[in-house]
Computed example of a mutant assay.
Amino acid sequence: MDPIDNPRARTAAVRALEAEFGELISRFRRVLSENANRVSPGMLPGAYKVLTTIARKEQVTLSHLADCLMADKGQISRAVRELEALQLVTRTPDPEDGRSSLISPTAFGLERLSVARAPQEGALLKALDAWSLADIENLSRMLHALSAGETP
């Protein structure tokens, strides 16, 4: 019987995958927490995630930021105010919508992010050093399919 047709084997494999994701998520949360603390002592991981998203997008509205992070606009607004108070981001009027602002990282914010990320810089490269390029590309393809709800 093909493993794809064996419901017990499939359930066991999915449970094992779920456990591995749990470990990966726990490790990722630790990294986020450590990085947040390096940006600014006491910064919560959620605010750090908001900052990294703003830095990645370069310029973003509050609404788009909330959509990207699948979070409540009020929660994101509080995090942005915290980041502004720390001079890590700035708001400018949105030229396309006078009721809205564009949020951008400051040079200081980008510098703090760089400092915060330095200890983990290259960790993924190092962890995957012995992997073949094909295996890395396959993992990337499979994770994309999983997160998009597609069949690889």
Rank of each mutant, 00 (worst) to 15 (best):
A9H: 12
R81L: 12
S114I: 04
L86Y: 02
R30I: 13
S147T: 05
Q59S: 14
T151L: 15
P95R: 04
E18D: 15
A79T: 03
A79L: 09
L110W: 01
L69G: 02
K73N: 08
D5K: 02
R8H: 14
A19G: 03
E137K: 11
F108D: 13
G74C: 09
R27W: 12
T90Y: 04
T61A: 00
G22L: 08
Q59G: 13
L124Y: 06
N138F: 09
M70V: 06
F108H: 12
A118K: 13
W131P: 00
S77P: 04
K57F: 04
L62R: 01
L62G: 00
A13C: 07
T106S: 11
M70W: 07
A116E: 01
E84M: 07
N35H: 09
A36Y: 00
R38G: 05
R10C: 06
K57C: 10
T90V: 14
S104F: 05
F28W: 15
T61S: 02
G42K: 05
A127M: 05
N35C: 15
P45M: 06
R56D: 15
L128P: 04
Q75W: 10
S100T: 03
S147C: 02
Q75F: 10
R112G: 01
S33I: 05
P152V: 12
E23W: 05
A130N: 03
P119V: 02
T151M: 12
S40N: 14
A55Y: 09
W131N: 10
E82C: 09
M43T: 04
E96Y: 12
A13F: 06
M1A: 09
A85D: 14
T61G: 00
G46L: 04
P7Y: 14
A16F: 08
L51K: 01
A134V: 05
A123C: 08
P119Y: 05
R81Y: 11
S77R: 02
M1K: 05
A130S: 08
S114L: 12
L146G: 08
F28D: 14
N37I: 03
D129C: 06
R10G: 02
T90D: 05
E84Y: 01
D135Y: 04
M142Y: 10
V50F: 07
N37K: 04
F108W: 15
R30F: 15
S63W: 06
A134F: 08
G122P: 01
A9F: 12
A13M: 10
S77T: 07
L125S: 10
S114C: 15
A123N: 10
M1V: 09
R56W: 08
L124G: 01
E121L: 14
D72Y: 07
G149T: 05
I136D: 06
R27C: 08
R8T: 11
I136T: 10
T11V: 12
L86D: 03
K49E: 08
T151C: 14
E18Y: 13
N6T: 08
M142F: 09
I103F: 01
R29M: 15
L51A: 09
L32T: 03
